[in-house]
Nucleic acid binder design. Sequence first.
DNA 1: AAATATCTTGCAAAAAAATGCAAAAAAAAT
DNA 2: ATTTTTTTTGCATTTTTTTGCAAGATATTT
Lengths: 249, 249
Amino acid sequence: MIKEERQRLIIEKLNRDQKINLVELSQLLNVSYDSIRRDVIELEDKGLLKKVHGGAVANSYLSFKTTQGFGIDNQEVLHLTRKAQKLFENHQTILMDGGTTNFHIAEQFPKNLELTVITNSLPLAIVLNEHPKIETILLGGTYHKRYQITLGNQAMRQLEHLRVDLYLMGFNGLDPNVGVTLRNYEESVLKQKMAKSAKKVAICAITEKIHTIETYKVCDLHEIDCLVTSLKPSDPSLNDFRNKGIEII
Amino acid sequence: MIKEERQRLIIEKLNRDQKINLVELSQLLNVSYDSIRRDVIELEDKGLLKKVHGGAVANSYLSFKTTQGFGIDNQEVLHLTRKAQKLFENHQTILMDGGTTNFHIAEQFPKNLELTVITNSLPLAIVLNEHPKIETILLGGTYHKRYQITLGNQAMRQLEHLRVDLYLMGFNGLDPNVGVTLRNYEESVLKQKMAKSAKKVAICAITEKIHTIETYKVCDLHEIDCLVTSLKPSDPSLNDFRNKGIEII
DNA sequence: AAATATCTTGCAAAAAAATGCAAAAAAAAT
DNA sequence: ATTTTTTTTGCATTTTTTTGCAAGATATTT
């Protein structure tokens, strides 16, 4: 069996099941675990799926369906992204970066919402393209294949000329002491600049991300104005955030 | 069995199975592995399939949903885009804008070509994303939904910092007296700036576009260094262009 | 914290591809 | 019909790609 055939079968199975398991697949296709793993890496580099521990999940950018990942509570994401809609008002200019959460939020924008959205995420630009009333501005820069965003000096420079109403920041980790953290250095630098270009900064956190810390720090909590969570605003685990003056939605 | 028949059978099998295996095929058709391999190379040159390690797959095997609707239905476009490959050399930086012709050219970049491609076209960025050796830089700006390109001041400003080896300009009309013309004003302004950022400007013209004139002028012929056409370089209808010192490919 | 599962890395064997060459076959020219 | 030229084919050699394995690192679960 040639590699391409295998990869196609992987994608097909993924579209059917929404998620795949590497061990299972290697048995099913009768090749070593390593080959499957390498296939999945290649497919991820092409932006056709998203690798997770033990397997892979469909890339919603392609399927335009909500992802149902390993360990990600789908209902929670839905709840969260619906709550996040309260952040937006007509005729605002919003800065949104990459990440699946932001993608799902954009997917759910009501048809009559009139926004200008500035983004460095290609998937975001593509979903927003289908929205009748949203004007999209893309930040230029070096295209990062896996994350499907633009990065680098050119994006940074473009931000200098901007002042937006709200920045909806994607992130990996959120901790009351350390602040907002990320897995990718270059992106973290860009996010710092983005935060400085906005009147208000909001983040949207699934419970999993709260109280986790990743490698690169983006900013302290005091730079965050608003936290959207699926928990009740009164939930005691949010005390640390509420005490620092962050509005909980 | 003659070569042509073999090749016909290869294409038929490919259309049935979506993929073929060279070893298998050589046994099936009772010829050496090398002959099959050479057949497949020929078929790939004709743009009828895509060669991969171990066999070949149909052209649009794993390609992106977003890029659909760009299928080549026209023999001339195929011929033209294949000819255009001569324009590129390893380690160059190329500026390419939107349009279907440029899209098809990018689609056919050989997989060992190492380029940096700067573009304002999202579909282009997406096909290039699947190429292993091409680095893509996106120009930022207001996203034009229908053309799927970025436009405006921000793109203009980004160009000021660039100096590229080659600009492959998309266009609507080409006339020996009027020069290069376009249907969209804003885009024509951007293209003027792009031309000024490049050491060399090339255009790729299907016969239909030659001797047609559209509303907005982009530039005079003397700004064009190279014209790729499906006609023979000696064709008398190209005299006007050749006389102005444009290299015909 | 231990146990289990999964991931990463480097390596070597195997499979397939590219290259150059010469024989065979086909086509063209005489 | 025969010679010349061109094209096609198969083979041997080198190079590249793919694959599976093993050992250590990392992550997840119990």
